[in-house]
Design a protein around this nucleic acid. Structure first.
Lengths: 135, 135
DNA sequence: AATATTAATTGTAATCATTACAAATTTAAA
DNA sequence: TTTAAATTTGTAATGATTACAATTAATATT
């Protein structure tokens, strides 16, 4: 697994250091789109010398190399996604959990965006998840 | 015009003070979704005593009363929208302008969000606008 | 292998948007 | 008019992110 990650980073022009590999692996294994804080707090157990700056630097590098996308739902917390294909996110107001969902199709009125170049598309919903509704 | 705004605020349980009225009016007339800074800098010419805190307080109040929605495209700048009907936003990476566009339909795979309660839907694109592409 | 060069990581301080809070002002009620 | 309640304001605090310089690790050169 870790071998695959190294390869994937290399293929995208990223030298696979320990920190980079672990951070990318964490994102792959935790598909709930953790915040930088969560990632740092978990990974520092593994890599005691880890700095939060490194986490930020690494994500900025991953972004430049287009192997992750940014998820901006709340103003004050950035999350990241290792799945760069187009899909939607649902964030529960109650528990804070972020869920992925598939988008089949979006039909928009093209009049306004005619001759615009669209590079990124983001769709997210907010509300209450099934588990929180039960309570 | 200003009369209508007062009425609209009252109808939604908001006492229409000078500041609130001007801020709401500004949002109605500037459909490009200005940031708090832009709004403050423009309105302070009109209301010299205006405080940026008031702008923030007012938007938070408007949000509670559901007469505006928040637009979170970039992590570090919150924008607001007086049009609370569902529509999309396009932000140009080059000039920073935010455009509205109409959404006809969105089809998603409902499996994951079955039994979820969806309260808000947000769709935004990023790229280059027509004007910036010409250059 | 030893040294020089370059790249990556780290810690601390700075930045900047937003909020907390208490004082001052304005509005409404008695 | 006096009193109470609501609104606005300015300043300080917060918290996420970035700038930057120093340290450490990796790579290239002799």
């Amino acid at each position: 697994m870790s071998k695959n990650i190294s390869e994937h980073l290399k293929k995208n022009g990223i030298k696979p250091s320990l920190q980079r590999t672990k951070i990318y692996e964490y994102l792959i294994e935790n598909k709930n789109h953790p915040t930088v804080d969560q990632i740092y707090n978990d990974l520092v157990k593994d890599i005691p010398t880890l700095s939060k700056t490194t986490v930020y630097n690494t994500f900025n590098l991953f972004m430049e190399k287009n192997i992750i996308t940014i998820i901006t739902i709340e103003e004050n917390e950035t999350r990241y996604d290792a799945d760069t294909t187009f899909h939607g996110h649902f964030k529960c107001d109650e528990c804070g959990e972020v869920y992925d969902f598939d988008i089949d199709d979006i039909q928009i009125n093209k009049d306004i965006l005619k001759d615009f170049q669209i590079n990124e598309r983001h769709l997210y919903f907010k509300g209450k998840c099934k588990d929180c509704l039960k309570k």
